[in-house]
C-alpha cells in the first residue's frame, strides 16, 4: 500500500491513512490473526468484510452518515473508505462537554439509530468509540453540536434483520457500553431512547419491550420478588 501510513490498530485490524483517487482515505486491513485457526480466520474475515460493505451501502440509502466506500479488496483483506480528517470520537466528545450537550448529542445518536433499525440494519457493536463527530466546515473545531455531523463506523459485526429481538440486543449492547464508559450513562441512554422513538415510530414499542426482556437475561443479576 504505497503512500499509506499506519494510523492506529483497531479492534479488528490495522487502520492506514493515505490518498486514493485524490481523496483522503482510510484503509482498514483485517490482517491475518495468528491466534486463530487459518480456516476460521479466513471465513470470519470474509464474512466481516462483506457485512461491513453491505451495511455501509444500506446506511447510505437510509440517509445515515457513514464513511463512503471506495474499494473492497478481498484478496488483500482491505476496505478503502472515506477518511474524515477533522473528526472526534463520540466517547472523547462526551467526556469533554457539559451534561446538557451530551444529552443533546445522545438524542441525535438515538434518532440515527432509530433510522438505522427502521431500515433493518443491526450494527452489532454499538459503542461510543464507533461513532464520530465531523465538523461540517472541515475545521478541527468541535464546540457547536449543530456544526457537527454524526458518523457511524465499524460495521464488521453488522447484519440485516427485521426482528425486534436483534434490535433490542443492539440497544442493550449500547447501554452496557455506555454504563462501562460514561458516568452520565443513565441520562444519556434515556436521551438515546427518546431520539430513537422519534425516528422509529412504527417499531419502537416492540423493540423497547424486547430491550426489557434482554436486560432481564443478564447473568447473576440480583432479582427481587
Amino acid at each position: 500500500m504505497e503512500g499509506f501510513e499506519l494510523f492506529k490498530q483497531g479492534a479488528e485490524g490495522r487502520i492506514f491513512k493515505g490518498t486514493y483517487l485524490g481523496k483522503p482515505t482510510i484503509a482498514k486491513e483485517r490482517f491475518v490473526k495468528k491466534y486463530r485457526h487459518p480456516d476460521l480466520d479466513s471465513s470470519l474475515t470474509r464474512e466481516r468484510i462483506k457485512s461491513e460493505s453491505r451495511s455501509i451501502i444500506r446506511c447510505k440509502n437510509a440517509g445515515i452518515r457513514t464513511p463512503a466506500l471506495y474499494l473492497v479488496d478481498f484478496n488483500r483483506r482491505i476496505i478503502f473508505m472515506e477518511h474524515f480528517e477533522n473528526s472526534i470520537v463520540v466517547k472523547d466528545f462526551i467526556s469533554s462537554v457539559s451534561e446538557e450537550v451530551a444529552n443533546k448529542l445522545a438524542c441525535k445518536v438515538g434518532a440515527a439509530l432509530g433510522k438505522m433499525h427502521a431500515s433493518n440494519i443491526i450494527h452489532g457493536d454499538l459503542t461510543t468509540s464507533n461513532m464520530l463527530l465531523v465538523n461540517k466546515n472541515n475545521q478541527a473545531v468541535y464546540e457547536e453540536l449543530k456544526d457537527l455531523d454524526l458518523i457511524f463506523i465499524d460495521f464488521g459485526l453488522s447484519h440485516i434483520e427485521s426482528s425486534a429481538e436483534d434490535k433490542g440486543v443492539d440497544l442493550y449492547v449500547l447501554e452496557r457500553a455506555l454504563i462501562s464508559t460514561h458516568s452520565l450513562a443513565k441520562s444519556i441512554f434515556e436521551q438515546v431512547l427518546d431520539g430513537y422513538k422519534s425516528e422509529y415510530k412504527s417499531g419502537f414499542k416492540e423493540v423497547f419491550i424486547k430491550l426489557e426482556e434482554v436486560r432481564a437475561r443478564g447473568r447473576k443479576r440480583t432479582m427481587v420478588g
Binding site: 470470519l44 452489532g124 457493536d125 454499538l126 459503542t127 459485526l157 440486543v169 457500553a177
Partner: peptide, 13 residues
C-alpha cells in the same frame, strides 16, 4: 482436523 463450528460474538458479548 479442524471442524467449522458456530461462532457467536455479539459486540463484546
Amino acid at each position: 482436523k479442524y471442524i467449522q463450528l458456530p461462532y457467536c460474538v455479539k459486540g463484546m458479548d
